[in-house]
């Protein structure tokens, strides 16, 4: 199988190593049905031409506000939601062309953890059964004993006790449930873990426990993360590189520190300046964005951000900016910022 065509590469990193995951021009349009005949009356452009690469061992953070398409992007990559168009290449294989069996096999290497660990754990199964299920589906264990041994090992890896395997999800706190979700994902020894708002539902002290656990696991098992979150401080802490999304498009991709120190896109800049800093001695200039995020059913023409952009010019509503490499490894989609 061949790698994606280089000319389409919008956000490839300069390093030569082949990316573990490549996403090219990914789109997902949800149909809105209405009327008594349930005709398609409109479309939501949830993901509107997203491209990026993830190298093995790195963490790509994806940030953006509600409705920017970050979660849909994550789910489209696993084909939990079927994308409308675009390409997803994982370990050199074309995910979009996979049949059911190939997809199932692929998902052994690509797992996902969700925001709400209660909704994603079957309440009627014990923790042992929840974690063991994946081992059975992928035929990774030969006997019951072997399965139990592996479950115990996984529970210990994520900081839970072996006797927890006989309990049910409701007996655990939010942080512990998220650990169970992580253990389940790790059961099949994946290479890429898509973390969809994994700590958003947790209290800060517990959030830190889970972030530290994810960092430890990455080091221990050489995992690669696609880390989707709305909390910029969390994303900045854990990511190697960060993609900023706005209304279905990636507006900027850069190494984490560089994005925070010298953002290029006016949206990234405003987003960063809006984050409250837990230190009363730090006084920053805040760039206040006017208004709300526009309706994704009818996104603004041209650059989606022009309606709220402090530096917008007349032609921003006409021409759609493309992601350009403005500095080495630092891509942004803006006509007027370099």
């Amino acid at each position: 199988m061949s790698a994606p065509v280089a000319s389409q590469a919008a956000a490839t990193t300069p390093e030569t190593a082949k990316p573990l995951l490549s996403v090219r021009d990914l789109r997902k349009h949800f149909a809105i049905r209405g009327g008594i005949l349930s005709r398609v009356v409109d479309k939501v452009h949830a993901v509107d031409g997203v491209s990026f690469d993830i190298k093995a061992g790195e963490t790509l953070g994806v940030v953006g506000e509600s409705g920017c398409g970050k979660s849909t992007t994550g789910r489209c990559i696993l084909r939990l939601i079927e994308p409308s168009s675009g390409e997803v290449w994982f370990q050199g294989a074309d995910v979009m062309k996979m049949d059911h069996n190939a997809l199932q096999a692929m998902r052994r290497d690509m797992q996902i953890i969700f925001q709400d660990p209660y909704a994603s754990l079957n309440p009627r199964l014990t923790i042992g059964a929840i974690i063991g299920e994946a081992l059975i589906i992928h035929k990774l264990v030969k006997s019951r004993q072997e399965m139990e041994d592996r479950v115990v090992q996984l529970l210990e890896t994520v900081g839970l006790r072996p006797d927890h395997m006989r309990r049910f999800p409701h007996e655990f706190s939010g942080g512990q449930r998220q650990r169970i979700g992580i253990a389940r994902a790790l059961a099949v020894e994946p290479k890429l873990l898509i973390c969809d708002e994994p700590v958003s539902a947790l209290d800060v002290s517990i959030q830190a426990q889970v972030i530290n656990l994810l960092e430890d696991l990455q080091e221990q098992f050489g995992l690669t993360y696609l880390f989707i979150a709305h909390d910029l401080s969390v994303v900045e802490h854990i990511s190697t590189r960060i993609a900023v999304m706005y209304l279905g498009r990636v507006v900027e991709i850069a190494p984490a520190a560089e994005l925070y120190d010298t953002p290029i896109h006016p949206y990234s800049e405003a987003l960063l300046s809006a984050v409250p800093i837990p230190d009363p001695t730090v006084k920053r200039k805040r760039i206040m964005l006017e208004g709300d995020v526009p309706n994704p059913i009818r996104p603004p023409s041209g650059c989606h951000f022009h309606t709220r952009c402090p530096i917008a010019r007349p032609d921003c509503s006409q021409r759609s900016p493309v992601l350009e490499e403005k500095r080495p490894g630092h891509w942004a989609a803006c006509h007027y910022r370099d």
């Binding site: 830190a208 972030i211 802490h237 800093i277």
Partner: peptide
């Protein structure tokens, strides 16, 4: 102290980044 140290800080540059100080237990 734990609460303050367990929050990731956007305003600190990546080089100075430390491991978060989580509070154990629940």
């Amino acid at each position: 102290q734990g609460l303050i140290r367990s929050i990731p800080r956007v305003d600190r540059s990546a080089e100075k980044k430390q491991r978060l100080e989580a509070i154990a237990g629940t």
